[in-house]
Design a protein around this nucleic acid. Sequence first.
DNA 1: GATGAATGAGTCTTCATTCAT
DNA 2: TATGAATGAAGACTCATTCAT
Lengths: 192, 192, 192, 192
Amino acid sequence: MAAAKRVCVSKGFGRAKIADVAREAELSVGTIYLYFKKKDELFAALSVRVLKHLNVRLWRARARKDLTFEQSLDVVKKALLEIYEIDPHMFLTLANLQASETLANITLELQRKIVDLLHQSFDIISQVLREGLETERPHAAAPAKLSLILWALFSGLVLWEESKRSLDPRKDHFKSTLNVAFEVFARGIVAH
Amino acid sequence: MAAAKRVCVSKGFGRAKIADVAREAELSVGTIYLYFKKKDELFAALSVRVLKHLNVRLWRARARKDLTFEQSLDVVKKALLEIYEIDPHMFLTLANLQASETLANITLELQRKIVDLLHQSFDIISQVLREGLETERPHAAAPAKLSLILWALFSGLVLWEESKRSLDPRKDHFKSTLNVAFEVFARGIVAH
Amino acid sequence: MAAAKRVCVSKGFGRAKIADVAREAELSVGTIYLYFKKKDELFAALSVRVLKHLNVRLWRARARKDLTFEQSLDVVKKALLEIYEIDPHMFLTLANLQASETLANITLELQRKIVDLLHQSFDIISQVLREGLETERPHAAAPAKLSLILWALFSGLVLWEESKRSLDPRKDHFKSTLNVAFEVFARGIVAH
Amino acid sequence: MAAAKRVCVSKGFGRAKIADVAREAELSVGTIYLYFKKKDELFAALSVRVLKHLNVRLWRARARKDLTFEQSLDVVKKALLEIYEIDPHMFLTLANLQASETLANITLELQRKIVDLLHQSFDIISQVLREGLETERPHAAAPAKLSLILWALFSGLVLWEESKRSLDPRKDHFKSTLNVAFEVFARGIVAH
DNA sequence: GATGAATGAGTCTTCATTCAT
DNA sequence: TATGAATGAAGACTCATTCAT
């Protein structure tokens, strides 16, 4: 799977061949098929891995208590950013999963796993937000909806950032845009 | 191109074959190649079309004067939503363009056109925001950055909405989430 | 299809590759797939051809009137033998169709065609036998059953003949055995 | 080998994999190769087993003395039918051996064994027929030739029966057709 | 301009066979 | 004897692209 990710990064998701992965992993083609029934199964498994990693990080963030809402949000932002900076392709893997038809070609079991992990991600973010929201922003929207908005905001920015490289030479800094985005978000959830 | 879009919608972006497009267009395969040098060229042209359509709408929104910031933002939201509702796959086309490696395989000319149109989109949104911001939110972030955030927010929500159909049976309504997202955004750009 | 047959003859049914057929036909692999959806479809089509050829011959035999039962039987034998001698592999094609799992992998339409042609073969043989039987062998078994027995006898002998070459050096002459078989059959359908 | 036969029956001859056999036998793949050098060797050995079983039955039939020709023939028929009914796939195994190219890929030793056993089968049938023929049908054809015809008749009917299941919904009963076939055969060997 | 048959390189996938343990 | 992970050659099938008509 590490090899598969490396191939995705270097050749692009759609151009990644099983033979490439095998070569990168210093295995034969057949061996790949010993562990993954289909090509799409392998790449979907990559997403599972990303989501698991993500959830571990988010979980750690959630463990911290006695934080204000702003601090909680900051913890979520840091968790997402940290993961992105460790491996900027992680979220792109997820974006590709969403944009491609990979999902249609995998086992129901794997599909369920992915759905489940995504739900977990949202639930953790919701929980982090909820505590701060309840005391400080009692009139804010439902945490579940807000966590989805946060997720969309983040993945939209990542997708843009990644595609920008080939499209748009105009320089803008991901991190600073992200900071502004989170500030806007934080202030937007006002208590009237 | 209309045929190409219909094929993309019904079979999915990655599974769309030139032969399908030809059949849908009631033309022969060869004829497609009279108008598009490469397959990727055709699908990139689709994105150009989406962006042009988008810009026309945004331009109309921009034309209205004497609006408060909130009203301006509402106009942008309506323009984006309207386009999405007329054709939910338009933004997915763009997302696919970003997520796939299509961009790497097209002529420089077409690449430039796409970049140019995207800049136009941002510029129009920036302008819409700028007027309201200058008078009502003098301390807000740069309009260019805010328009990017708005774009990311919207495309992130669309991508999620589209992928959710196959992944996640949990019902949530795109439109209401979008409304909340824009409310949060609008309130977030406060003048301290 | 002529190329496919030649490949079957020279390399054996199970070892015939699409690439071989393409080379033999002086076409590319893709062109084969322009006319046959699946590999098995091509080889099943071969059987259809054999059966059609067979039925034409049998039909001609049937056209002759005013024959005694023995003469009718002789006409059937000659028709079968003639086909076998023109192309000894024709019946082997059918035997392979029966012994292999090809039938499970073809379209229902093609399956139906094969069934239909086989029924036709039996029906023609039945008709040839019927006339002679009615007047000369009134107490014989049903012509349909007898034509099946004749068919089994013939194809059993062909299968044996074909496999014998690699198995059994013991010489015996197909034609003379066939003659004896038909004599036995003719005498066996006695009028008590 | 029992496992191999079960796999052949359930998945079909051509679709039987060594891995399937190993799983069925509750052994590992490697272990299969301790006992059979090649895949074809294993399946050829299956034929040897069938032929041995067949010969045992035929031998028993031969042991009975003081039978008329018709009774002898009946004994042969019963032996063949009994084997067929115990395991309808036995003869199909032999038919597959004949129709496929398996024979070309096995050791000379195994080839000889198969040839030898086939000769034995014919010889036993010949002997059964000979006794009755000599006294009751002095002018009949050579017993060797007649036993080959009998064999062809039987295997032709079996092959037909087996293929019919997937091809032809038209019901006809194997056993009754076989009975008619043997009656015809018995009467056909008349003494003029 | 339009056609669509032909192409063949490119990929996935399978599976008999080996071999270090 | 037994294992079963690893192999990689082989082969079916696809589809963007071309070009003679």
